[in-house]
C-alpha cells in the first residue's frame, strides 16, 4: 500500500517530462499522422491505382486505407514507447541513481511507461478525431471504441515488457539497437502492421495465433473495424507471453546486476 503514492508521483513526473519540451510534444502529435499520409496513403492508393472497385484478398482500397488508418491509432497507443533507452542507461552507468532510491528500477520504468501512455492516449484521441473527420474510417459504436482502446492499452504492456527485456541485454551487449530493429521489423511484418494477416497463408496465421505478434496490430485493428476476436483466447495467449517475458526479465536483471560495473560513476 505504501508504494501507491510512489507510483502516482512517478507517473506525474513522467507526464511532466514528456510535456517539458512543447515543440517536441507537438511534433509527437502530428508527426505519425504526417508520415502515415505521405507513405501509407500514397503507397496503397498507387497499388490500387486509385480504383475503389478492385479487391485484394477481400480488401477494397477504402477498406485497406481504413485498416491502415486504424493501424496508426493502434501504433500510437500500443508501441509508442520507443523512447525508453534502457541499454544506454545501463552501458553508461546511468542506472546507478535508480539503484540507490528505495523504489525499484522496474517500478520506476513501469510507472514512467504508464505516465507516457496517458499522454499517448491523448495523442491517439486527437489523431482519431482528425482521421474520423477526414472520412478515412467509419466511426464505430462507443462500446466498440472503448473495447478497442482497452484492448490496445493492454497489449501496450506486452510491447513494454518485450522492449524492457531487450534493453536489459545491455548488461552483456555493447548496444542493443540492432536487436530492437530486428524485433521491430519482424513484429511489424508478423503482426499485420504492414499487410493484413488475411493476405498471409492460412497455415502461417494458425501458427502465429500462438505467438504474441498478431495481437499487437491485426487483432486491435480488426476490433476497431467491428470484427471482434475470441477475447478469452487472445487475452489468455497475451497474458501467458507477458508472464513468461516478465519472468525472463526478472532473471536477466538478477544475473545482469551481478555483472554491472556502474561505468563512469
Amino acid at each position: 500500500m505504501n508504494s501507491i503514492p510512489k507510483w502516482l508521483e512517478t507517473i506525474r513526473i513522467s507526464i511532466s517530462k514528456v510535456m517539458a519540451y512543447r515543440l517536441n510534444f507537438l511534433l509527437q502529435i502530428i508527426g505519425p499522422t504526417l508520415v502515415f499520409f505521405f507513405i501509407k496513403y500514397n503507397l496503397w492508393s498507387s497499388i490500387y491505382q486509385g480504383d475503389r472497385t478492385i479487391l485484394i484478398s477481400g480488401y477494397t482500397l477504402t477498406a485497406m486505407l481504413a485498416y491502415h488508418t486504424w493501424g496508426l491509432v493502434v501504433e500510437l497507443l500500443a508501441s509508442g514507447f520507443t523512447a525508453m533507452n534502457l541499454s544506454e542507461d545501463i552501458r553508461l552507468g546511468r542506472i546507478s541513481t535508480y539503484l540507490i532510491y528505495p523504489f525499484n528500477f522496474w517500478e520506476f520504468h513501469t510507472a514512467s511507461f504508464i505516465g507516457f501512455q496517458i499522454t499517448q492516449v491523448f495523442i491517439a484521441l486527437v489523431t482519431f478525431g482528425a482521421v474520423a473527420l477526414s472520412g478515412l474510417i467509419e466511426v464505430p459504436m462507443f462500446t466498440l471504441l472503448v473495447k478497442g482502446f482497452s484492448y490496445t492499452l493492454f497489449i501496450s504492456f506486452l510491447w513494454f515488457v518485450m522492449n524492457y527485456g531487450i534493453g536489459l541485454l545491455a548488461f552483456w551487449l555493447e548496444d542493443t539497437w540492432i536487436l530492437k530493429v530486428i524485433l521491430m521489423v519482424i513484429s511489424s511484418f508478423l503482426s499485420g502492421a504492414i499487410l493484413p494477416l488475411d493476405l498471409f497463408p492460412a497455415g502461417l496465421v494458425e501458427v502465429l495465433k500462438w505467438t504474441p505478434f498478431p495481437y499487437l496490430s491485426y487483432y486491435p485493428i480488426k476490433i476497431f473495424m467491428g470484427v471482434e476476436p475470441n477475447y478469452l483466447f487472445a487475452i489468455g495467449v497475451m497474458t501467458g507471453w507477458m508472464a513468461l517475458i516478465t519472468y525472463c526479465n526478472h532473471l536477466v536483471w538478477k544475473k545482469g546486476m551481478k555483472l554491472y560495473t556502474a561505468a563512469g560513476m
Binding site: 513526473i13 511532466s16 517530462k17 517539458a20 519540451y21 546511468r94 546507478s96 541513481t97 560513476m265
Partner: peptide, 11 residues
C-alpha cells in the same frame, strides 16, 4: 555524485 546528476534534468 559530483560527476553525475541525480536530479531529473527536464523538471
Amino acid at each position: 555524485m559530483g560527476q553525475k546528476s541525480q536530479l531529473w534534468w527536464d523538471i
